[in-house]
C-alpha cells in the first residue's frame, strides 16, 4: 500500500480517462445540445410560424401560418443544407458516444435521494433517469420519423418531409383521423421524453461549467444556474410548443396546405408524383376524399 501509484495495467478507458470524460461532456453541448436548440426552435415554428412569415402570414390562422412556415423550414433543411448526411452521421455518432458512455458512467454511482433529498441531489438522479428515458425516446423518434420504421408507428404513418406537419400530426395523434389510444400514449411519451431531454441538456450545461472549471465560486455556480434555468425554461416552452402544435394540427387541413405549397412551387405533376410514391396512403379508405380536396 506504500506505492499508491502502482496499479494494474490500465485499459484504454482508464488511460484516456480525462479525454474521454471531457469528450463526453463536450459532445453533450456540441453537437448534441446545439442541434437540440436548432431542432426545437424549428419545430416550435408550428406554433409561432404565423408571425415568422411576417407580412405574408397576415390573414393566416395560427395553425395555417405554423404549418406553412414549418414546411418551408423542413424543405429548406432537406434541400438547401449541404452535407446533410454528414451532419446527421456526426450527430448519430455523438449521441451514441454520449449515451453509451453515459450509461456506463451512471452505473458507477448509486443514488441516495431518500437520505439526502437536496435540490442538487434531485438533479443528480434526474440527470441519470432523463438520460435513460431520453435515449429511448431519441431512438424511437429517429427510427420512426427519420428511418421510416413504420412498424413502430400506430397505423404505420410514414413521415415525409414534403408533408412534414400532416404526417407528424398523424404519427403523434395515432391516425390521420385524429386521436387514438395509442396516439395518446405516443404523445405522452413525446411529452415526457422531450421534457426530460431539455432538462438533461440544461442541467448538463450547468454541470459542464463546473467540470470545465468555468464556474468556481458558489456564487458563480448559482448565477450560471439561473442562466441555465432560463435557457432550460425557454427550450421547454419551445418543446411544448412544438408538441402542442403537432398535437393540435388537423391532418386534412395540413395536408391541404402542404399540397398547395407543392403545387405552387413545382406544379400539379409533382404533387401527383409524391402522392403516388407514398405507399401508406393508398390503403386508407378515405384516400379519394383526400385527393379531391
Amino acid at each position: 500500500m506504500n506505492q499508491p501509484q502502482a496499479h494494474a495495467k490500465p485499459g484504454p478507458l482508464q488511460k484516456h480517462h480525462f479525454l474521454i470524460r471531457r469528450l463526453h461532456s463536450l459532445t453533450g453541448i456540441v453537437p448534441i445540445g446545439v442541434f437540440l436548440i436548432a431542432h426545437l426552435v424549428t419545430n416550435s415554428s408550428l406554433a409561432w410560424g404565423k408571425w415568422g412569415l411576417r407580412t405574408e402570414g397576415r390573414g393566416y390562422s395560427v395553425a395555417e401560418g405554423g404549418i406553412k412556415y414549418f414546411q418551408k423550414e423542413v424543405a429548406w433543411i432537406n434541400t438547401q443544407v449541404p452535407h446533410l448526411l454528414l451532419i446527421e452521421i456526426t450527430l448519430w455518432v455523438s449521441i451514441a458516444f454520449h449515451s453509451i458512455l453515459g450509461f456506463y458512467y451512471a452505473t458507477t454511482g448509486k443514488g441516495n435521494l431518500p437520505r439526502y433529498p437536496h435540490q442538487d441531489n434531485w438533479r443528480y438522479s434526474l440527470q441519470r433517469w432523463s438520460g435513460y428515458i431520453g435515449i429511448l425516446f431519441i431512438f424511437y423518434h429517429v427510427a420512426t420519423l427519420r428511418w421510416g420504421w413504420t412498424f413502430l408507428v400506430p397505423e404505420g404513418t410514414k413521415w415525409s418531409h414534403d408533408f412534414s406537419a400532416s404526417t407528424l400530426a398523424a404519427a403523434l395523434q395515432g391516425s390521420p383521423e385524429g386521436w387514438t389510444a395509442a396516439g395518446i400514449g405516443i404523445s405522452l411519451f413525446y411529452f415526457v421524453g422531450v421534457s426530460l431531454l431539455v432538462f438533461h441538456f440544461a442541467n448538463g450545461l450547468w454541470t459542464a461549467a463546473i467540470t470545465w472549471g468555468l464556474t468556481v465560486s458558489e456564487k458563480a455556480q448559482k448565477q450560471w444556474g439561473v442562466a441555465c434555468l432560463g435557457l432550460g425554461l425557454g427550450l421547454m416552452v419551445a418543446a411544448w410548443a412544438s408538441l402542442g402544435g403537432a398535437l393540435l394540427i388537423d391532418y386534412d387541413e395540413a395536408k391541404g396546405i402542404e399540397s398547395k405549397l407543392i403545387v405552387e412551387k413545382y406544379g400539379e405533376d409533382r404533387l401527383e408524383e409524391l402522392l403516388d410514391a407514398a405507399p401508406a396512403e393508398p390503403e386508407r379508405p378515405d384516400e379519394q376524399a383526400m385527393a379531391d380536396d
Binding site: 490500465p10 482508464q14 437536496h118 442538487d120
Partner: peptide, 21 residues
C-alpha cells in the same frame, strides 16, 4: 495527473451533497 486519471475529479456527478453534510 492523478486527479485526471480513473476515479479522479471527472467522476464527480455534481450531486453536491458533500458540501451540505
Amino acid at each position: 495527473d492523478t486527479l485526471m486519471g480513473a476515479g479522479g475529479v471527472s467522476d464527480c456527478g455534481n450531486a453536491q451533497n458533500c458540501v451540505k453534510v
